[in-house]
Design a protein around this nucleic acid. Structure first.
Lengths: 159, 159
DNA sequence: GTTTCTGCAAAGGTTTTGCAACAAA
DNA sequence: TTTGTTGCAAAACCTTTGCAGAAAC
């Protein structure tokens, strides 16, 4: 587990009088072993590869803690389930673009947009605490050439 | 029901060979009688005030149609349920700011941010089809004065 | 008449919770 | 010890679906 993650977590657990337990260790190790977004069920699978005995309930409970601590963020990918994003420690301002052709998620950061969001919010009389942008978009290369090599895009399966 | 809504809907139903039925009329009338965001269950309640016999299943099925037709948009307010927004016909580019003090939702539009989103998306090699911004923010007036008269904000109930 | 639509109730899927046993501090 | 935590199974919740009867075209 990354040192930054461990430290952030220790501070959080300490400040709340919470305990460092084996199942929590395992779940957190699984969550931060990847930079992919995942669902609760996917995290359960990943955690069980490390320790078969981890329960679904503990995964859900640990996810709540991680979100509360700021280590993980819930993100809206326009799908039916809640996804979790482990990359906000590294890139605190990033946003998501979702390819409507292959469902791939591209993360991007942009200072201009971050500043603009901040200005707009303050002009409305608020102080921003959490900003998120989701863009759905189609792949131009795919539209032009019928394939999208550089991004490994493939047209979605016909229904 | 607004003329713009009716026309949009007729075109959609016509193009798909779908029927104009009583329950659909009622549900759509309820959905566009307000500019508030609502959940499926809230829409069911609103529709049943017009006609008690409307069923939950038909509300869900009609919501899908309305989203598909573009009359309604699903929005993420950071709550547990899906909310629907009936204001995109009027303000196709608007975004949402959610007050963390009173949970009020403020809609805002901004051309600069719309252009910037478009640029960023194209620079990444995509063509934007749907863009959404969600900002969570605290009320500055509330922070300064302890109350927020102009926006009718109230501090959230202590837990 | 044919096709689509409706309401009902059941089923599906995700997330939360009560509880008794267990583990950390 | 004391308090927090776990796994299990059940419950809660929102949403979808199969079906037989009803309504639209």
């Amino acid at each position: 587990m990354d040192a930054k993650v461990r430290q952030h977590l220790d501070t959080f657990l300490g400040s709340k009088g919470l305990r460092r337990t084996k199942p929590r260790e395992v779940i957190i190790e699984a969550a931060f072993a990847t930079t992919e977004h995942f669902t609760a069920e996917e995290l359960l699978d990943m955690a069980r590869k490390i320790d078969r005995t981890v329960s679904r309930a503990t995964v859900y409970r640990t996810l709540s803690l991680l979100v509360e601590s700021g280590l993980l963020r819930e993100i809206d990918l326009g799908r039916d389930q809640t996804y979790y994003d482990p990359n906000f420690l590294e890139k605190p301002q990033h946003n998501h673009l979702i390819c409507t052709d292959c469902d791939k998620v591209v993360e991007f950061e942009d200072d201009n947009i971050a500043v603009l969001e901040d200005c707009i919010t303050r002009r409305l009389g608020f102080k921003p605490s959490m900003k998120s942008i989701r863009i759905e978009a189609s792949c131009e290369e795919l539209a032009r050439k019928g394939v999208c090599a550089s991004r490994k895009c493939a047209s979605r399966q016909p229904v």
